[in-house]
Each structure stands twice: as structure tokens, then as C-alpha cells.
């Protein structure tokens, strides 16, 4: 047996093993009752919004009439014309708090939860290595970001299709696009929203490596999220606000302009990549160097 073959046969099972670890992590995470409950709550938001808009407009009036217009989440006034807009409204309504809170719970629980229940040391006894375990955990959290966003989008699309008409839609720039293109943009928006959560996920994972109490890690992550969201509203802090992970979140709406306005979208992706790099490496530095006592 040549050296190359030996290396190959060594690498193949290790690679398989990584996927095995990822698969078992994914199964464990998505089989938990709390994960399913979180996803159920997220799926419920578009249903509530859809029914509320349907009831309010059943008398022929438009949304927000008499309140000067512009109330409520983005795109809400267009839902009655096109059910597809419920997808955008639902994402705009869940992105500031519901989605990142769910991510905070899953990410905060990732390492600290294992330490809390005393299972972390068994994971480390297996010859996986801490770096690989951390990467697997991060991949699982990102998978949850995507699934959570898609749950909101699919639930909104279903409710929108049942309650409201579908068809050609008008972009916020006033031009018209076909329903297929609108559906494509909705999918793109869902992906952008999922990517927007990468920063919070990395932050949550880092916090999770600091403590061995799952609850403390979740509370810290969600607390940081709320603090940042409040600071983002204070006009005097405008100099540092562009560096908050949540500052460009609502830029996904720029995909509904025609032509698409990319500036803020690109800034959002940059800031998410920066947060992922900084807190991901900080989590790695902490997790690979810490004494595991539980």
C-alpha cells in the first residue's frame, strides 16, 4: 500500500465521521421539543398577521386607514393586493426579535447546554477534536437560521395564497414584475434574512463557550440582542450604529426595488461576515483552550 493510499483511506473515514457528527447534531437539535416549539411560534406569526389584515380589510377599507398610513411592519399595506407580500411583511415583523431570539436560544445552548447536562466531556472523548466539534455546532446553528427563516417564509406564502389573491406584483419602485420573478425575489430575500442572522449566531456561540450554564448563555445572547436593538434607535449614537450587527437587517427590502439597490445589502453581508469571523475565532480561542469540567 502506497503512502498516498494510506492517507486517502485515513482521510475518507474522518470526513465521513465529520458528516456523521453533523448529522447527529442536526438530528439532536431538530428533534428537541423546544426547537419544534420555537419553529411553531415562528410559523404562527404570519398566520396572525394574515388573519389580522384579512379581518381589518374585510369591510373594504385598506390597512392603516385613519391612522395616517405607514403603521405596522413594512409592506403591510400591499398584502391585500398580493399574498406574496405577506412573506415580506412576515420576515420584516420577525427579523427584529423573533428570529434572532430563536437563534440566540439555539446558539446559546450549543456548547453551554452540553456542559450543563454533562454530555460535553463525552463528545470530547470521541476523537473529533474541539475545533471540529465547534465547527459542527456552528454549522448546526446556521442550519437552524435557514430552517427558521424558511419556516416563516413558507408559512407566510401558504397563508397569503389562501387568504389573498396572487399574481403580478408591483415593486416598491412602482414597476411590475411577474409572479415567478416575485417568487424568486421572495426566496432570495429569505436567504438574505437567514444570512443576516449569522452574526447573532456567532455571538451566541461565543457566549456559549464562556459559561457552563445553558440558561445564562441564552439570556446573555438575547439580552445583548435587545440592548443592541435599543442602541440602534438612539440618534446620538449614529457614529457607531453602522457597526451593529442589526443595523442593516431591514436592507433586505432593497431587493424589492427595481433596479435592486445593493449598497446596504452588501454592507449587511460584510458586517455579518465580520461578526462571524471575530466571534467565531473568539469562540474557537476560548473553546480549544478551556478546561472542560463538566
Amino acid at each position: 500500500m502506497s503512502q498516498a493510499e494510506a492517507a486517502g483511506s485515513l482521510r475518507a473515514p474522518r470526513l465521513l465521521w465529520t458528516f456523521g457528527l453533523l448529522r447527529s447534531e442536526l438530528l439532536t437539535t431538530f428533534r428537541r421539543w423546544r426547537t419544534i416549539a420555537l419553529l411553531a411560534v415562528l410559523a404562527g406569526v404570519p398566520i396572525l398577521v394574515g388573519i389580522a389584515v384579512k379581518i381589518e380589510t374585510s369591510g373594504g377599507s385598506s390597512v392603516g386607514e385613519g391612522r395616517g398610513g405607514g403603521g405596522g411592519p413594512a409592506f403591510i399595506s400591499q398584502i391585500t393586493n398580493n399574498g406574496l407580500f405577506l412573506v415580506f411583511t412576515a420576515l420584516a415583523a420577525t427579523l427584529p426579535f423573533f428570529l434572532p431570539m430563536a437563534i440566540g436560544v439555539i446558539a446559546g445552548d450549543a456548547i453551554a447546554g452540553e456542559a450543563n447536562s454533562g454530555t460535553l466531556r463525552y463528545l470530547l472523548v470521541a476523537p473529533a477534536g474541539r475545533t471540529r466539534l465547534l465547527l459542527t455546532k456552528y454549522a448546526t446553528v446556521m442550519a437552524f437560521c435557514l430552517v427558521a427563516t424558511l419556516v416563516v417564509a413558507v408559512s407566510a406564502l401558504t397563508v397569503g395564497a389562501i387568504l389573498f389573491p396572487l399574481g403580478e406584483l408591483t415593486t416598491i419602485s412602482g414597476t411590475q414584475i411577474s409572479f415567478t420573478e416575485g417568487l424568486g425575489r421572495a426566496l432570495l430575500i429569505a436567504l438574505i434574512v437567514a444570512v443576516s442572522l449569522i452574526g447573532v449566531a456567532a455571538l451566541g456561540l461565543f457566549v456559549s463557550t464562556l459559561t457552563s450554564s445553558g440558561i445564562a448563555a441564552m439570556a446573555t445572547t438575547v439580552g445583548l440582542l435587545i440592548t443592541i436593538q435599543i442602541l440602534d434607535q438612539i440618534p446620538q449614537l449614529h457614529a457607531i450604529q453602522p457597526y451593529f450587527f442589526s443595523h442593516y437587517w431591514l436592507s433586505f427590502a432593497d431587493l424589492m426595488r427595481d433596479p435592486v439597490y445593493w449598497d446596504d445589502l452588501v454592507k449587511n453581508l460584510e458586517i455579518q461576515a465580520l461578526y462571524a469571523a471575530v466571534f467565531g475565532s473568539a469562540a474557537w480561542a476560548r473553546f480549544t483552550a478551556k478546561d472542560i469540567t463538566a
Binding site: 385598506s62 419602485s173 427590502a253 426595488r257
Partner: peptide, 23 residues
Amino acid sequence: NAAEYSIIHNGKDVWGYDSQSNE
């Protein structure tokens, strides 16, 4: 933010569209 106000002039028509209030 998540809305746009457009004035479109095309031939003899002038349209103003406020996407926030859908007016």
C-alpha cells in the same frame, strides 16, 4: 426604509407612487 416614493413621468402622465401607504 423598506419603502420608496416615486414620481414617474411618461408621456403625458405624471404618477406619484408611495409604496408605504400604497397610494
